Amino acid sequence: MFGDMMGMMNKLKEAQANVEATKKRMDTVMVEEKSTDGLLKVTVTANRQLKNISIDDELMNDKEQLEDYLILTLNNAIQKAGEIHETEVAAAAKDGMPDIPGMSDMLK
């Protein structure tokens, strides 16, 4: 039984290391989002860090429209990045978890 417990602890440590590596990798996964008309483009990492904003000159003449575009486009990009992040981290955690009865039900 002690050997089983040590094996599980090692598996948990491996899972934790795998999750941390996945979180670091998410810094390199880029999500690009565009406004519906393509006048604004934003790029964020899967860790939800803003990397780039590209604004068409047409939007520079209307501050209110630009603000609306920024809010909508950034929110969409952050949402997509968050979904990717959560999916990848959950998969990394689940892959490394030891087979403990009832544990897989808790991860759903």
Rank of each mutant, 00 (worst) to 15 (best):
M1D: 11
M1N: 07
M1K: 09
F2I: 13
F2R: 13
D4R: 12
D4P: 01
M5C: 00
M5Y: 06
M5F: 13
M5G: 00
M5R: 10
M5H: 09
M8L: 00
M8T: 11
M9K: 11
N10P: 00
N10T: 10
K11V: 01
L12T: 04
L12C: 06
L12Q: 05
K13E: 12
Q16K: 15
Q16G: 05
Q16E: 15
Q16T: 05
N18D: 14
E20N: 11
E20C: 00
A21H: 05
T22G: 01
M26G: 01
M26P: 02
D27P: 04
V29A: 05
M30S: 06
E33Q: 15
E33I: 00
S35Y: 12
T36C: 03
T36I: 12
D37R: 14
G38K: 14
V42N: 11
T43G: 02
T45Y: 04
A46W: 02
N47T: 07
R48W: 01
Q49W: 00
L50Q: 13
K51Y: 04
K51S: 04
N52D: 15
I53C: 03
I53L: 11
I55F: 08
D56I: 04
E58V: 05
E58R: 14
E58S: 14
M60G: 04
D62M: 04
K63A: 13
E64I: 07
Q65A: 06
Q65G: 00
L66S: 06
L66P: 09
E67K: 14
E67S: 12
L70E: 10
L70Y: 10
I71R: 13
L72I: 11
L72C: 01
L72A: 15
T73H: 11
L74S: 09
N75T: 11
N76L: 10
A77L: 07
A77Q: 07
I78R: 05
I78E: 08
Q79V: 04
Q79D: 15
K80T: 12
A81N: 08
G82L: 08
E83K: 09
I84Q: 10
H85D: 09
H85V: 00
E86D: 15
E88M: 08
V89Q: 05
A93G: 07
D95N: 14
D95A: 15
M97Q: 08
P98V: 05
P98K: 08
D99I: 02
P101S: 07
S104T: 08
D105S: 11
D105I: 00
M106K: 10
M106W: 03
